[in-house]
Design a protein around this nucleic acid. Sequence first.
DNA 1: TTGGTTGCAAATTCTTTGCAAAGCT
DNA 2: AGCTTTGCAAAGAATTTGCAACCAA
Lengths: 140, 140
Amino acid sequence: MDVETRAQSFETALRRAGVRITRQRAALLRVLAAAEDHPDANQLHTRATEAGAGVSLATVYRTLTALEAQGVIVKLEFEGESARFEPADGLHHDHMIDVETGEVTEFMSERIERLQAEIAAELGFEIVRHRLELYVRRRK
Amino acid sequence: MDVETRAQSFETALRRAGVRITRQRAALLRVLAAAEDHPDANQLHTRATEAGAGVSLATVYRTLTALEAQGVIVKLEFEGESARFEPADGLHHDHMIDVETGEVTEFMSERIERLQAEIAAELGFEIVRHRLELYVRRRK
DNA sequence: TTGGTTGCAAATTCTTTGCAAAGCT
DNA sequence: AGCTTTGCAAAGAATTTGCAACCAA
C-alpha cells in the first residue's frame, strides 16, 4: 500500500468517526502514512512543516490524540524518551530497541501472546492490552 | 525478611558502593523496605515525612536515582502514571495492572523469558533488559 | 578535613489547555 | 450557520539541576 492510499484510508476512517479533515490533519496523515520509523510529536511537526504545511505543535498533539482514539495510530512510550507514534496497520506487534543505536525492530510471537493470556486467566483476569519491549544489544 | 533487616541489607549494599548513608537516605531506605505496594516519589516523600524524617522531594529523587544505579530498587513506568519504585528482591518479575482498580500483581514466566531470548537471538541480538506489562480486567 | 549530600528555588522537558479567531461541512 | 479546530501563549506535571551551606566518614 503506497503512502497516498494509506493516507486516504486514514482519512476515511476519521471521517466515518465524524472527525473533520482540516488542512493540518491531512498534512499530518500524509506524514504519518509515510513514516517508516517511529517519530515523536516534534519530528512529525518538523516533517509537516518541511512539507510546507503550517501546523502548530499544539495541533500536532491534539491531532495525535484524536488519531489514537480512533485507532488509526499507536502511541509508543519507550524508556527515557518522549512518546513516539506509528500507523496502526491492523496486526499487533511488539518492539525491540537496540540500546546502542536506538534502532527499533518490530516482532510478534503468537506463543508469547498466548502465554500472556494464559497467565492472566490463571489469576482471574483477561488482557485489555499489553506492552512488551525488549532492550537489546547486537551480539558479537 | 522483616523491614529492619531488609533496610540494613540495602544500607550494606550502598556502603559497599561507597554511597554515604545520610539521615535522609536511611529514612528512605526504611520506607522502601516497608513498601508492600509500588509507591512513586511523592508517596515516598510523604511517608518519609510522616515518619518524622525531614527529606526534600529533590533528595527523594536524587536518592532514588542512586539506589536504582546500585540495583537496590527497580523503577517502574506504567502507562499514564509517574514513575513508581519497588525494592529489588533479586528475582526478576513482570507486572499485571488492573485497569479498573489500579491493583498491581507481580508474575513471572520462565517460558516467556525464554521465548523473548530466542526471538532476540534469531534477529542477532541479546537482551539487556525488558519490560512486560499486562493491562487487565477481572473476568466475570 | 573534605568531598559527597541537602534544600530551595529555578530550570527543563514534554504535553495539555483557555480563548478568540478561523475553517469544515 | 453551527460546531469543530487552530494558534499562541500560558499552564501543568514530573523530574532535574545550580549553588551555597552542611555533614558523613
